[in-house]
Simulated scan of single mutants.
Amino acid sequence: MDIEFEGEIFRWTSREQDWFFVALPPELSADIREFPRPRRGFGAVRVDVLIGLTRWRTSIFPDAQRGAYILPLKRAVRDAEGIGEEGFVLVRLEVLDA
């Protein structure tokens, strides 16, 4: 399953550091939930991601507050693509577990 979407960056702050994420649109998240796949911790789904010229493998996680999966944005990706702490990014995502 291949997905492309534009998502808004948001910050989640823990006691020790800040984490940055992009939420998938709720309708795409619903489509992903429908695909049978192996059970993983925290409801994670393995994905291959492309933002700009940077490609990496990670997992998306369900976020009950947003009713959608969220994609973590690693610092290395944000630095490589000049992504700031807010704004929107174009994401190409391939679901590997589907």
Rank of each mutant, 00 (worst) to 15 (best):
M1T: 13
D2L: 10
I3R: 04
E4V: 14
E6Q: 14
E6L: 06
R11K: 13
W12Y: 12
T13Y: 02
R15I: 03
D18W: 06
F20H: 05
F20Y: 14
F21D: 08
L24A: 10
L28Q: 15
L28D: 15
S29K: 08
D31Y: 14
D31N: 15
I32Q: 06
I32M: 03
R33V: 07
R33L: 11
R33G: 10
E34S: 13
F35A: 12
P36T: 04
R37W: 00
P38W: 09
P38E: 15
R39E: 15
R40Q: 13
R40L: 12
R40T: 00
R40K: 13
F42M: 06
F42N: 10
F42A: 10
G43Y: 07
G43L: 02
A44K: 04
V45R: 09
V45S: 07
V45I: 10
R46Y: 06
R46A: 15
V47K: 09
V47P: 07
V47D: 09
D48S: 14
D48Y: 14
L50I: 11
G52H: 04
G52Q: 04
G52R: 04
L53T: 15
T54V: 07
T54K: 12
T54F: 13
R57A: 11
R57L: 09
R57T: 12
R57K: 14
S59V: 00
S59K: 02
I60R: 05
I60K: 08
F61Y: 15
P62C: 03
D63Y: 02
D63S: 11
D63A: 08
A64F: 01
A64E: 14
Q65L: 07
Q65A: 12
Q65W: 05
R66H: 09
R66F: 08
R66E: 06
G67W: 08
A68Q: 01
A68E: 04
Y69G: 09
Y69D: 10
Y69L: 03
I70F: 11
P72S: 02
K74R: 12
R75V: 04
R75M: 05
R75Y: 08
A76V: 12
V77R: 01
V77S: 00
D79M: 10
D79E: 15
D79W: 06
D79I: 11
A80P: 00
A80Q: 03
A80Y: 05
A80E: 05
E81C: 01
I83N: 02
I83D: 01
G84F: 00
E85G: 11
E85Y: 12
E86K: 10
E86Y: 06
G87E: 00
F88G: 04
F88M: 13
L90R: 14
L90D: 13
L90E: 14
V91E: 07
V91H: 07
R92H: 14
L93Y: 11
L93A: 10
E94N: 14
V95T: 07
V95R: 06
V95M: 06
L96S: 01
L96A: 02
